[in-house]
Amino acid sequence: MITLIKGADVYAPTPLGINDILIAHDKIVEISPSISLQGGAVTVVDGKGCIAMPGLVDSLVHITGGGGEGGFHTRTPEMQLTEATLAGVTTVVGALGTDATTRTLPDLIAKARALYEEGISAYCYTGSYQLPARTITGSITDDILLIDTMIGIGEVAIADHRGSQPTARELAKVAADARVGGMLSGKGGIVSIHTGDASDQLTLLHEVINTTNIPASQFYPTHINRNQSLLEAGQRWCEAGGFIDMTTSTNEQFIEEGEIPAAQAIAWCLAQGIDASQLTMSSDGNASLPVFDAEGQLIGLEVGKVRSLFDAWQTLAKTEGVFLHDAIAVVTSSPASVLKLKNKGKLAAGCDADIVLCDAQSLDIRDVIARGKHMVSDNGVLIKGTFEA
């Protein structure tokens, strides 16, 4: 299976200029200005007029569904393959949320493996919102070390009424266990942190890194664009050496209540001098977007969309003052680096052949290649999920 992309403007995400990209099976073999191959086994893709960028890495997707805050009928549906591929997403990381009873870790692992068999790369976290953590083996370290798809734990909830209200000591122990599991397995061992809208914000994370030997880089807090105050707390977390993630799925009510659109939040952070390597966006796809009243009662519910990640990236890329390579990094190389997915998020020889071709003017998706397979062509689906109509 040999594919040759001809004449694309390549962003790796570092801009490389007009180049050809040679793919053999699931890897990039070569990127250079002129590659010539002959033979019927070579599929040639015309990349002229397009930018070629790495496939998007979505670090938080509820691939088996989420929700349930309003009762059983409010459990959200699982993600389908083309929800990712049509949005240029070639790598997803699945997680459990509030519900770790009817949504289970075995199901999460099975769904991740199913998505892999259908053509994209899929990983997952052990645990959920609550501590003590739900695990497969009885140990966070063992889950990360022994289960191939598991790369960390999350999303552990802080500053949220739905969380288990963990102490710094409890959270430090979780981080230490995940760190050791990551070290022994060569994985990230990251602790994905769901940050709620309570006033304590990221205080607990600062307490952990100030009183233990756990570095800030072990934590990966998300939903940092809930409001300007939390965004400024995120800036301080980056100054302490950490990473922050903005959520792209939103609704009008969230925005009216002070949430900052993800692209706008990233642009603000870049303007403050935060490096793009510390900034990411994720979709929170297929999660519930619950609206609560002052007493914590559910009054509204929508569903997160994986597509929102590409839409937010497109907005960011067109934002004045934001370099295109920085915008690309935020959804490719930055999350891949945080998660220590070494062959993801970049275009280079030896890396996984996850490539998105976008029209150079509109930045609309034209083609998507995942692990060397042509999944989307001319914005039309070539490969569907097993049970997609």
Rank of each mutant, 00 (worst) to 15 (best):
R134C: 08
D148Y: 11
V61Q: 01
A133E: 03
I153D: 00
G154V: 05
L131C: 02
F72E: 14
D142C: 10
V61D: 04
G47S: 13
V156E: 01
I109H: 10
I51A: 10
G67R: 01
I136H: 09
A100V: 07
T74C: 08
H62T: 04
V45P: 01
A87M: 04
T137L: 08
L96C: 01
D58T: 03
L105M: 07
E69P: 06
V61G: 00
P54Q: 11
R134G: 04
P77I: 07
T126C: 12
I144L: 08
E118R: 06
T141E: 15
A157P: 05
P132G: 04
T101I: 15
L115T: 07
T91V: 12
P106V: 09
L145V: 08
L105K: 02
L56E: 00
T64L: 12
T91P: 02
A114S: 15
L146M: 14
R134V: 15
A122D: 03
G97F: 03
E117Q: 13
I151M: 05
S164K: 10
Y123Q: 11
R75V: 12
K111A: 07
S59A: 15
T149P: 09
Y129L: 01
L56I: 15
H73E: 14
I144W: 00
G154E: 05
G88A: 09
R134I: 14
T90V: 05
T91C: 11
V45E: 02
M79A: 13
H73K: 13
Q130H: 15
R113L: 14
G119F: 03
D107Y: 09
T102N: 14
E155Q: 13
S128P: 06
V89T: 11
D58A: 06
P132M: 08
D46H: 14
G71F: 07
R113N: 15
V92P: 03
H62Q: 13
I151Y: 05
G138S: 10
F72T: 12
C50T: 14
T90M: 02
G65C: 11
A122N: 03
E78S: 13
G70T: 06
E69T: 13
P132Y: 05
A157C: 13
T104M: 11
E117N: 13
T76A: 07
G154Y: 04
T101W: 11
V92F: 03
Q165D: 15
Y129P: 01
P106M: 08
A95M: 06
S164E: 11
D148Q: 14
A133D: 02
Y125S: 09
G88K: 01
Q165I: 11
H161I: 14
T126E: 11
C50F: 14
G138L: 07
T126W: 06
A100Y: 12
I120P: 02
A95C: 13
Y125M: 15
Y116C: 14
S139L: 07
V61C: 03
E155G: 05
T90D: 05
A84D: 01
Q165M: 14
T102R: 12
V92E: 02
M150P: 02
I109L: 14
I153R: 01
M150Q: 07
G70N: 10
